[in-house]
Amino acid sequence: MNIFRLAGDMSHLFSILLLLLKIHTIKSCAGVSLKTQELYALVFATRYLDIFTGYISLYNTLMKMFFLWSSFTIVWYMRYHNVVRRSYDKDQDTFRHYFLILPCFILALLVHEKFTFLEVLWTFSLYLEAVAILPQLVLLQRTRNVDNLTGHYVFFLGAYRSFYILNWIYRYFTEQNYYKWITWISGLVQTALYADFFYYYVKSWRNSERLQLPA
């Protein structure tokens, strides 16, 4: 564990806590894409099956359990909670997220490190995570006056990805035989998707304005 990896994990944890805070305390999910949240639940469910097959560390297991629990909890709130579900921008959140799942699965069947059940699902989760933010970015663009919590949520998600890239660079130079092409390329694609958002986020922060993405 290096400082970049830890910073990445903490950003990820913090982004989810922000989202849970908004949903649980303010009882609103305005501006949050259910499509993206469903994709994350699928990402974690397919990646963390190794909870049952191997042990890495207590930290690792607890984090995986938190990500699984929180992603399904958020989806539950947005779909079924009496108050929260009414604040969901259903008409704006129109991204056809099912169309992301099949291509990612086919790609995982074709490009993977080992053709085993767990390995293909793990690879699928990497490809899917890379594009899972797309419905959220589209929704942000459609929402005039993005509220602060939603903006910060996406910012910390993007920060998590950026720290992971620094972590990979650090590990490449400090560990022997550390290379993971599939993880790196999907991670780079994922981080690149945030570039545009970051630009407008920093701009609105510097001008102390509310975040507004161009239509």
Partner: peptide, 10 residues
């Protein structure tokens, strides 16, 4: 470690 099996990252 070959990079294939060690999935210590989240």
């Amino acid at each position: 470690s070959s990079g294939v099996t060690d999935k210590d990252e989240l």
